[in-house]
Simulated scan of single mutants.
Amino acid sequence: MTSVGDRAPAPAEDRVQSAASKLWHITLSVSGAEAPLAEVRRGLEQLAHDHPFLLTSRYANDHAEIRYWEEARDLHDAAAVALRLWGEHRATAKLPPWTIVGLEVIDRQTYHQRLAEGYGPPPAARVGVHPF
């Protein structure tokens, strides 16, 4: 057994990489053939349970929107993770076989600037899974 004091320090490269990480606000939009609302909701709730980083999901019987914060080194990394989210968890969360039709990735500063100027997405005040 290793105690916290016995651990070797993280390599310098790992420390630099984590120090360079920042938060990105992700909005992922998916759509496809109609599915029963109860199944869509249940799938999104399961996804939120499996991945508590999800802020909010909105859904209808043929589309959904997922909003959350992602920590990543740069926009490319954040977008890559976001683009894998739906497909990688489709089976485990029993999500509809929809495709990604939209992706927005903005940094924290831009997100808050948009809110302050009144033209950004409304804050996700109601965390959870909700119908449109």
Rank of each mutant, 00 (worst) to 15 (best):
M1K: 03
S3Q: 05
V4G: 02
R7E: 10
R7T: 07
P9D: 15
P9W: 13
P11C: 00
A12K: 09
E13D: 09
R15C: 01
R15A: 04
V16P: 02
Q17M: 05
S18A: 00
A19S: 06
A20F: 00
S21Q: 14
L23D: 13
W24L: 02
W24N: 01
I26E: 08
T27E: 12
S29E: 14
S31H: 11
S31Q: 12
S31V: 02
S31M: 11
G32N: 04
G32Q: 04
G32K: 13
G32C: 08
A33D: 14
A33C: 05
E34S: 06
P36C: 02
P36S: 01
P36L: 03
E39W: 10
E39A: 15
V40D: 11
R42Y: 01
G43R: 01
L44P: 01
E45W: 07
Q46A: 15
A48F: 03
H49M: 10
D50K: 10
H51D: 13
H51W: 12
H51P: 02
F53A: 14
F53R: 09
L55E: 09
L55N: 10
T56Y: 05
Y59T: 00
D62K: 06
D62I: 02
E65N: 11
I66E: 06
I66S: 08
Y68C: 09
W69N: 09
E70D: 04
E70P: 02
A72T: 06
R73F: 14
H76R: 13
D77H: 14
D77I: 10
A78C: 14
A79E: 12
A80C: 07
A80H: 09
A80I: 01
A82F: 03
A82W: 02
R84V: 03
L85A: 03
W86Q: 04
G87N: 15
H89G: 02
H89P: 06
H89W: 14
A91V: 14
T92S: 10
T92D: 14
T92Y: 01
A93G: 08
L95S: 01
L95Q: 00
P96W: 07
W98N: 02
V101I: 13
V101M: 08
E104H: 09
E104I: 07
E104G: 12
E104V: 07
E104A: 14
V105H: 01
D107E: 13
R108T: 13
T110K: 03
T110H: 00
T110M: 03
Q113R: 15
Q113V: 14
R114C: 09
R114K: 15
G118I: 11
G118Q: 09
G118W: 10
Y119C: 04
Y119V: 10
G120A: 01
P122C: 03
P122T: 15
P123H: 03
A124D: 15
A124K: 08
A124L: 11
A125Y: 08
V129H: 08
H130W: 14
H130Q: 02
H130P: 00
H130Y: 08
F132P: 05
F132Y: 12
F132Q: 10
